[in-house]
Design a protein around this nucleic acid. Structure first.
Lengths: 215, 215
DNA sequence: GTCTATAGAGCGATAGAC
DNA sequence: GTCTATCGCTCTATAGAC
């Protein structure tokens, strides 16, 4: 009986115990968010990791493979996160927790799921990445619609109009805020965070400043 | 006395009366929105216009020059548009008119001012473009804050919280919506448009479906 | 699993003829 | 103002040694 804690499949510990494949993904993720998919190369990654171009091709034969792995990683991370977030006391808390995942990594630029990151260069990314991006977007959208409905049920959120439209508006605002933060600093993101949460919370009476943002 | 209809400055009518410089900008603008700045080349433009690579370099010596011209074009177009929009009856109408400019060109992809388009690849565009993008963003932001204040004055809009935060949220939502539309179709944009206008309008009583979207 | 070396393509850009 | 031709560079990707 194999130890269930040891994941089956690929062998990993190489280069003095470091996991090259994982390090490639981490570096590529940051480059993707700062420079776009067509704005970084295998060379950028190789220099950061102190390895050679060809070593990356061993782990990800084509750049499309790397791109697809990045999107899948986002999707899986988001789905795992929603499981954790299910323990939040209210739907409002779950939504704020989701927005907070952006803030937590804003300077390092790693997010749980920057769902619309590929929209700006959609026609210039490989087909398989396009499809993965569409699936990722659907996951986030459906979770958000569901959570808004939950929020109406537990009376933790208020909004007017349709939950589908509200979900899309919030997701779009988060995505745009991420881009504005790149252009004009993280304060832009915090403004959007404040406004979204302010509008979502019931009894937004005077004096209530809403959830604080992590420093 | 010179004819005031004939603009002073650069001579233009070439290639059978066609304005190559302008055609380059139009083609580049659409490529930029669909593929990102690093996702299109002079070749893409040359093929579309039936000219040669070198002809583009005559009008825009470097790609940075072309990029800067594109952002300046957006800025000037937006500033000219705000002058026109000043004739709208209310601040709410001006905001809706601004959102509408996105819709009008959504399939052709030409917008008045997709203010955050460079956020996704900010670190991978030339310095001068970065600075121009920051100025463009500031223009839109300031106009939006001013218009929200006007809206409080003429009672045509309602919102909670600070006008600066609300402006940033709306601008971010529009930008995100544009990217979502690239990924999942223009209906995504229309959802955000509906929700933003719904939340902005006073007396959003039942039965009021808000401003219609142009087909 | 990582290396050296290199192929092959596309890129931005320039020179000079017309 | 547009062309042909080409340069030098970077990019993705592969072959083969270790």
């Amino acid at each position: 009986m194999p130890n269930p804690l040891l994941k089956s499949g690929r062998r990993r510990p190489i280069r003095g115990g470091r996991d090259t494949r994982e390090e490639i993904l981490v570096a590529a993720e940051e480059l993707l968010l700062r420079r776009g998919f067509n704005g970084f190369s295998y060379q950028h990654i190789a220099v950061r990791l102190g390895i050679r171009n060809a070593a990356i091709h061993y782990h990800f034969p084509t750049k499309e493979d790397l791109g697809v792995a990045l999107v899948r990683r986002y999707r899986l991370r988001f789905l795992a996160w929603t499981d954790e977030a299910a323990q939040c006391a209210s739907a409002f808390d779950r939504l704020v927790a989701y927005f907070q995942t952006y803030v937590d990594h804003l300077d390092g630029r790693l997010q749980i799921c920057p769902v619309g990151i590929f929209g700006a260069e959609f026609d210039a990314i490989p087909d398989r990445m396009q499809r993965e991006a569409q699936m990722m977007m659907r996951d986030v959208y459906e979770w958000m619609v569901r959570t808004l409905h939950d929020g109406l049920g537990d009376r933790s959120v208020v909004f007017s109009g349709d939950a589908h439209d509200k979900a899309m508006e919030m997701a779009a605002a988060m995505q745009g805020a991420l881009q504005f933060a790149s252009i004009a600093g993280r304060e832009r993101f915090e403004q959007v965070f404040r406004q979204i949460t302010l509008e979502l919370r019931p009894a937004s009476a005077a004096g209530d400043t809403g959830p604080a943002i992590a420093a």
